[in-house]
Design a protein around this nucleic acid. Structure first.
Lengths: 251, 251
DNA sequence: TACAAAATGTTGATATTTGGAGAAAATTCA
DNA sequence: TGAATTTTCTCCAAATATCAACATTTTGTA
């Protein structure tokens, strides 16, 4: 049995999809037997079965970032437009690799003569296409789920610049803990970016104003009095203390 | 759910838009069948449907508009598919920043476990989204018209790697002068990339087989005997000598 | 060898998919 | 606008795939 399984898996992996009959001929057995071999494989999730063929488990057609980009995309686009309105032509920016930042980059496409430093390959590629911009990609080794770099060279590049404005994002905002990030790399990068900028703009959509601290346990100690927070919906009163000396802009 | 879905999505993603009839011919089925396959995809929002054609949903990670307005994009997509068929899953690649290379990157999205080194922010961002890939962005300062890096760090990064295959492009191919590039930076990068690869694949669309040497006066001394040249149309006989010991593949 | 267990093959009923013809809707062009 | 053209939709018959039940063969063991 197992010798057939291997051959089935190999063939499927090689061709992407195979018909049951095709496999039956190749293995010199009946189609019924193929079905019996394939059934446990499907149950174990090693292949997928559709009418007429057996197909390889789909490599993520929708990469994680685009999936996240779809969530709350309307709100993020709104925030991005607000931020774009704050940033003047000719500004020097550093932009982090958050999903909301990708929308900001998109919104900044109508600007010109920007100097942009970012550790997101996607943002770099979008903004470099705009004539007159100077774009610097920080980092070499790209993280696979979002195409962002957090290696040593990313920090070295960021530290070489001084810019007007840092555009940052957070994974979550907690009333007492403040702005939170997913992992230490992101915290370090946010600190590095905020350190080279005269002012910071924090972009957080409505879904981030939540108390659950599930996957974002790390604090982002980056904002200073007078920095701007852009969001799409008024946060609850429990955030009053946190936002006391920040410049909150809604819509 | 059908066995053709994957191929439909592939084709749509690669070409931006396709006609129902075109897909029908490619998949060797009736237009009715294509409509039936496409209908659930439209309902799930994976593609968009207009009268006469089926259109890819615009995604932030999609090739920017500029990449779609490229001349000869149909031919380049064809070449890209051929190259993608040559490259196996798990390969280590270095990819240059030519416009055809962007199409190759798009076509490689269905591969997995690739190791990719490139000096194009766009290619880096596209391929880094694919789960299992390891992508390295070479360079920091991005050239504004194509988002490619040719600074010193770009060469340093490239020289750190050894890969199976280099995917290169040329601006023009001349019967006697051979493969030509636009400027010295591109020549230097092509040499660096070809030096770290076991074999080279040169992608040139039909429009490059011309004698005019207007804007591409610099020779690309990068190909070695046995290297692959992929194009979409048989070049004239005057290229016989140039292609003598190369592996020419048409279509 | 005999026996039981597992794997494979065969048959027939059921379900799904496909292609064709014609009607309906959308698009183009004079 | 109205006719000609193209694209899309609907229904149905034919082709194909799937599943379940039973027969047959192979394998493992005493």
């Amino acid at each position: 049995m197992s010798k057939y399984e291997k051959e089935v898996l190999d063939t499927v992996a090689l061709h992407g999809t195979v018909s049951v009959m095709g496999l039956a001929q190749q293995l010199k057995v009946t189609d019924q037997t193929i079905r019996r071999i394939v059934k446990p494989l499907v149950e174990r999730g090693e292949v997928r079965k559709v009418h007429g063929a057996i197909v390889a488990v789909s490599h993520p057609t929708d990469p994680p970032l685009s999936a996240r980009l779809v969530e709350h995309r309307h709100e993020k686009a709104l925030i991005a437009r607000s931020i774009a309105a704050i940033v003047p032509d000719g500004a020097a920016l550093v932009i982090d690799a958050g999903s909301t930042s990708s929308f900001v980059a998109q919104a900044l496409c109508r600007h010109s003569d920007l100097t942009v430093v970012t550790n997101s390959a996607h943002i770099a590629s979008v903004l470099s296409m705009v004539g007159g911009n100077h774009v610097y990609m920080a980092g070499t080794q790209l993280r696979s789920h979002d195409g962002a770099a957090f290696d040593q060279s990313a920090f070295e590049v960021v530290s070489r610049f001084t810019v007007d404005t840092a555009i940052l994002t957070a994974s979550l905002v907690h009333p007492e803990l403040g702005f939170l990030a997913n992992d230490q790399h992101e915290v370090d990068m946010a600190i590095a970016m905020s350190g080279i900028a005269d002012r910071r703009i924090m972009a957080v959509d409505q879904s981030k104003w939540q108390e659950r601290k599930a996957n974002a346990p790390l604090r982002l100690p980056v904002l200073q009095p007078g920095d701007i927070v852009v969001t799409d919906s008024e946060p609850g009163s429990e955030y009053g203390t946190l936002l006391a000396d920040l410049d909150l802009r809604v819509g």
